[in-house]
């Protein structure tokens, strides 16, 4: 028993992620699955910090650090340059935070999806601007505390996975670090599909930002799945939906109980959140054949 995960060592030790950081863990699975024939684009985010201080890199592939809003365009530029040189094999992957994806970088992402650029775009979604000290992004879920929403966020999380599906891209998947085999499989699948923009949203709990212990990243990520807040699924060509892991009986209450960012919630608030999650899940469920 245990996970069967083949890794090609691309992600290096000695990086500067917080102890237990899920972004680092996600990077490990993503990069070590992509292998050495890849070029990565990273915008400002914790990922950029993890990438390493000059002259050191935590990634044994070329990494280009771009601006916060430009990841998709930057990745596309690399891919097109490679194509122009006749290189059709090197994978180009943008790895951006949720702020860089759902907010400021969304225009470039949507456009790259529309052009169907031959890149993989991975959003490491920690549900907030963490590198700048836990501010709200449009990926921050309802009622969560951030330093810019001290009373809790008033609007629900933007559903970027479904928006990406609406672009009819060849592949969209949600994944998270608590299910490393699933994440690795999705990265592999994205690599195999080629010929268009492949988008993977990876939920990566931020320990400090969410208020969970250093050891709780994977566990929290699983709670998100098991409580129905973050179902793991994949969609091909904007229409073929497959559910990988859905809710298994845990409730929103189970999920929020372990996180300090929800500690101001009243039982009524939790019920409202539960209703929101139920509603979203019902809507999504209809799409699985």
């Amino acid at each position: 028993m245990g996970y069967e995960i083949q890794e090609e060592k691309v992600f290096n030790s000695g990086h500067a992620a917080c102890p237990g950081c899920s972004e680092a863990l996600a990077l490990r699975f993503i990069l070590n699955t992509l292998g050495k024939d890849a070029i990565a684009v990273v915008p400002p985010s914790c990922i950029a910090i993890i990438s390493g201080p000059q002259p050191l890199s935590s990634m044994s592939i070329p990494v280009y650090q771009t601006t916060l809003e430009a990841s998709a365009a930057s990745a596309a530029g690399i891919k097109r340059a490679l194509i122009s040189k006749g290189n059709n094999h090197t994978n180009v992957v943008a790895i951006a935070g949720d702020g860089g994806t759902y907010d400021i970088g969304f225009q470039a992402l949507s456009a790259a999806a529309e052009r169907n650029e031959d890149i993989i775009y991975v959003c490491l979604d920690n549900e907030g601007y963490m590198n700048t000290g836990t501010q709200k992004s449009s990926a921050t879920p309802s009622m969560a505390f951030t330093t810019s929403t001290p009373a809790g966020k008033l609007s629900p999380k933007k559903n970027v996975p479904e928006i990406m599906v609406a672009h009819n891209i060849p592949y969209m998947a949600t994944a998270t670090t608590g299910y490393p085999d699933d994440l690795v499989r999705k990265v592999k699948k994205a690599m195999e599909i080629k010929g268009g923009l492949r988008f993977i949203n990876v939920l990566t709990p931020c320990l400090a930002g969410w208020g969970v212990p250093d050891s709780a990243g994977p566990k929290t990520s699983r709670l998100a799945v098991q409580s129905g807040i973050y179902p793991l699924y994949e969609v091909e060509n904007g229409e073929t939906y497959t559910l990988n892991y859905g809710p298994n009986g845990l409730s929103v209450a189970d999920y929020v109980a372990t996180q300090k960012r929800y500690r101001h919630l009243s039982p009524e608030d939790v019920e409202l959140l539960q209703a929101e999650v139920n509603h979203d899940w019902e809507k999504l469920q209809k799409k699985f054949k």
Binding site: S84, A108, S110
Partner: peptide, 19 residues
């Protein structure tokens, strides 16, 4: 590359050039 903005055009230009 028919970009969606000049910002992205320049972003792509930079990485293509660095490639």
């Amino acid at each position: 590359m028919t970009m969606e903005s000049e910002h992205s055009a320049m972003a792509a230009a930079i990485t293509a050039s660095l490639t």
